[in-house]
Amino acid sequence: MEKSFLPPSVELNNISKNYGDVQALKGLTFKLEPGERCALLGPNGAGKTTTLKILVGLLSPNSGYVKIGGYAPQSQEARRMMGYLPDDASPYRSFSVRENMEYIGALRGVDNVSEKVDRLLDSLQLREYEKAKVGRLSRGNVQKLAMALAIIHDPSVLFLDEPLNYLDIPTQETVIDILKGLKATLLVSTHIMEVATRLTERVVMISHGSVVWTGTLGELKNLGKEGEPIERVVARMLTDVI
């Protein structure tokens, strides 16, 4: 990747976060340059979801700072840049699919919301559910809608937590194509290595709230023996640090 003179898209510096007596993050530090695509890997309870919630400004760290494109995550500038898809995302349940998309599009200040919604309805095969209430959708269709809501404003920094959960294989391919087509900095939290390898080129591995390894996917593969699946390499690395 070319050296950029822009501020990093994502910067976490020495972030700590406690939930009561439990320390979820301990001095977490990493950066993503503009356009970089990175996977956030770690075992259950490593602090991946907490990291994403702090990055998007929904949770305040106890210490350290976060910058999105050089701005604090709660600033209007940062919020314009960011898109976020949480794990088990649930849109407004009493709204229909279209109402959800138009409402969030309007709140995001998207131009020509209606056209944008039409395009997303077609590309994510949601057209037939346009008037359906979210509460009555299948989990897979809810996930498609959630993806549409996360990208409706063409974010330049996108945070995704298990983005392909609940999706059938054809839709997974559609979503991968859509995400690859975005010119956005991407941070994908996932347990599934195939998701990481399909969507990203770099890995930040965390455990017990701290970064334990960072590098490219190629470097990660090279850590394994010849022919060893990448999942096994990751499993060994995470087991070693637990």
Partner: peptide, 25 residues
Amino acid sequence: TFTRFSSGQVKHVRRFSGMSPNSAI
């Protein structure tokens, strides 16, 4: 109740297209 799809349709879809963020709120 959960599988009754037809009653989960919104009859009059509300439109937010063209509204400013404050108008949508």
